[in-house]
């Protein structure tokens, strides 16, 4: 397995341009056309979070927007880290919240 990327709450990430998300009853499929890699997002809340990622949004805001309870944030950060490690999501320019 690829090494896990660490994702911080005050960073911005986006879905990689070569990646498509397909909704499914259990969540979504993420397909990377470049690497031909398929990954499964097994929770709808995670799909909501990933769909709301953009350059103007911090990970923290995406989690709050999807009403993810704070105690679940570490698990979500880990899931996002695994998406990042396979190139499904990419980091935007560093932006820190003051």
């Amino acid at each position: 397995m690829t090494t896990l990327v660490s994702i911080e709450l005050d960073e911005s990430w986006v879905l990689a341009p070569d990646v498509a998300l397909r909704p499914e009853p259990f969540g979504a499929l993420a397909y990377h056309f470049g690497t031909r890699r398929l990954t499964f997002l097994k929770q709808k809340a995670l799909v909501t979070v990933v769909n709301s990622l953009n350059a103007q949004t911090l990970v923290r805001q995406a989690l709050e927007g999807a009403h993810v309870p704070e105690e679940q944030w570490p698990a979500f950060l880990k899931a996002l880290g695994s998406l990042a490690s396979t190139g499904m999501i990419t980091r935007c320019d560093e932006r820190k919240v003051s």
Binding site: M1, T35, R36, R37, L41, Q43, A75, F76, A79, L83
Partner: peptide
Amino acid sequence: AGFDFPANLTT
């Protein structure tokens, strides 16, 4: 074929 099923599936 060709799909990579990671052992550790995303959440």
